[in-house]
């Protein structure tokens, strides 16, 4: 339940008793996963196995649904070998289909990935098995990492960027998030970093996106908030009135024109 107020969203058009029951049902599902009760198939990956329920997997993913439905080997063997997948990502996927969430905090295992890259992993496996809700969740967890200082070192970021630009398409949500993060943290973009230079050389698309971002932002107006004393770019379609774009301030003004910074320049927020 990552959303800030899940109840208010779920409650739309839903009676309270139904909502309560839904919560109980989900808890029951979670316990079924934990105890393997009623499970009717096995998933293998690397050295791990999970006892799961075909009905649950089929409900989330058309790929699993077809896999069990057709005349293929899995339908009779009831064993799926997800070889080649990262077992932690598989675990996250299974966690999601039973609990609608997964844990991206650092793993204890030796082969762990940083949360940033792990979320990219989950994002990709969600795409592979066509579970768009899990993709959304992974993307939002990725953004959270970039905005709440979850990135501790350049190496983690570079790893994630390589993965993102390696396996996603243009205009992907993760690409946007990575570019936004990179731009915001100009310190990361220090030309001194050989690693970064290498990434830009390896991933020209990333370099292009960065430049696009820079030129786009340079066309926008910059405001200086008298309350929080911070600078911010006018969001697209900004009308000159409303709250301060800095979320922690959000002080509303009727007329921001006096706060317009006359000369456009690069400013960090």
């Amino acid at each position: 339940m990552a959303s800030s107020d899940p109840k208010s969203k779920l409650m739309i058009g839903m009676k309270e008793y139904a909502y309560n029951h839904l919560v109980v049902t989900m808890l029951t599902l979670t316990s079924l996963f934990a105890t393997s009760k009623y499970s009717d198939m096995t998933i293998r990956c690397a050295n791990r196995t999970w006892k799961v329920h075909r009905a649950v997997l089929s409900a989330h993913s058309a790929v699993f649904a077809k896999m069990f439905d057709g005349p293929f080997a899995e339908a009779t063997s009831r064993v799926v070998d997800l070889e080649g997948n990262d077992p932690y990502s598989v675990a996250a996927l299974l966690s999601f289909v039973y609990t609608f969430d997964y844990d991206d905090s650092e793993h204890d295992e030796s082969a762990k990935l940083c949360p940033l890259s792990f979320n990219v992993q989950v994002y990709l496996i969600a795409d592979k098995y066509d579970i768009s809700a899990l993709q959304d969740l992974a993307a939002s967890k990725f953004k959270k990492c970039t905005t709440t200082g979850g990135v501790s070192n350049l190496g983690d970021f570079v790893l994630a960027v390589r993965a993102i630009y390696g396996w996603t398409k243009e205009d992907d949500t993760l690409r946007d998030a990575a570019v936004a993060f990179a731009w915001a943290r100009t310190n990361i973009l220090s030309p001194d970093s050989e690693e970064l230079v290498q990434v830009l050389l390896d991933l020209p698309e990333f370099a292009v996106d960065l430049i696009k971002r820079a030129t786009e932002l340079s066309r926008r107006d910059v405001y200086h908030c008298p309350s929080c004393k911070k600078y911010w770019f006018a969001p697209p379609g900004f009308s000159g009135t409303g709250p301060c774009a800095i979320k922690t301030c959000a002080k509303a003004r009727n007329d921001w024109s006096k706060c317009l910074v006359s000369l456009p320049r690069n400013t960090s927020t």
């Binding site: 057709g70 005349p71 293929f72 080997a73 899995e74 009779t76 080649g84 592979k128």
Partner: peptide, 14 residues
């Protein structure tokens, strides 16, 4: 088809 693994074929196409 009964000996073919769906997952394998799917993965290859993927």
């Amino acid at each position: 088809a009964s000996l073919l693994s769906f997952e394998q074929l799917y993965r290859q196409a993927y």
